[in-house]
Simulated scan of single mutants.
Amino acid sequence: MKAPFLLLLVFIPAFGQGQVGASSGEQMMSLTGEAQGTTYHIKYRDERKRSFQKEMDSLLADIDKSLSIYRPDSEISQFNRSMSHRFMSPHFYAVLKKSAEVFRDTKGAFDPTVLPLVEAYGFGPTKRPKGAFVNVDSLLQYVGFQYISFDSVSVVKQKANIRLDFNSIAQGYSVDQVAALLEAQNIHQYMVEIGGEVRTKGQKNDGQPWAIGIENPLHPAKLQTKLTLTNRAMTTAGNYRNRYEANGQVFSHIINPKTGEMEQSSLLSVTVFAEDAITADGYDTAFFVMGLEAVKQFLITRKDMDVYILYSDDAGRLKTFSTNGLKNL
Rank of each mutant, 00 (worst) to 15 (best):
K2L: 10
L6E: 03
L9F: 15
L9G: 05
F11C: 03
G16Y: 10
V20F: 09
S23V: 11
S23A: 15
G25Q: 03
E26W: 15
S30I: 01
L31C: 06
Q36P: 04
G37D: 01
R48H: 08
F52A: 02
M56H: 06
D57V: 05
D64P: 02
S74L: 04
Y93F: 14
L96T: 13
S99G: 03
E101C: 11
T113E: 02
V114A: 07
L117N: 02
V118I: 12
K130A: 12
G131H: 04
G131A: 06
Y142E: 03
Y142D: 04
V143R: 05
F145Y: 09
Y147Q: 10
I148E: 02
S149F: 13
F150E: 02
D151C: 09
S152Q: 12
V153K: 15
V155M: 01
V156P: 01
Q158P: 08
Q158N: 13
I162A: 03
S168P: 10
I169T: 09
Q171N: 14
Q177N: 08
A180V: 03
L182T: 00
Q185C: 07
Q185Y: 09
I187D: 00
Q189W: 02
M191K: 08
V198K: 01
K201V: 00
G202I: 01
K204F: 04
P209F: 10
G213Y: 07
I214R: 07
I214G: 02
E215V: 15
P220D: 01
Q224A: 14
T225F: 13
L229T: 00
R232D: 00
M234I: 08
N242P: 00
R243I: 08
E245Y: 13
H253G: 00
N256H: 11
T259P: 09
E263K: 13
S265A: 06
S265P: 05
S269N: 09
E275M: 09
D276E: 09
D276G: 08
A277V: 03
D281R: 02
G282S: 07
M290C: 06
K296T: 01
K296I: 03
L299R: 06
D304A: 13
D304Q: 15
Y308T: 00
S312M: 07
D313H: 12
A315V: 06
A315F: 14
A315W: 15
K319V: 00
S322T: 07
L326H: 06
N328M: 13
L329F: 15
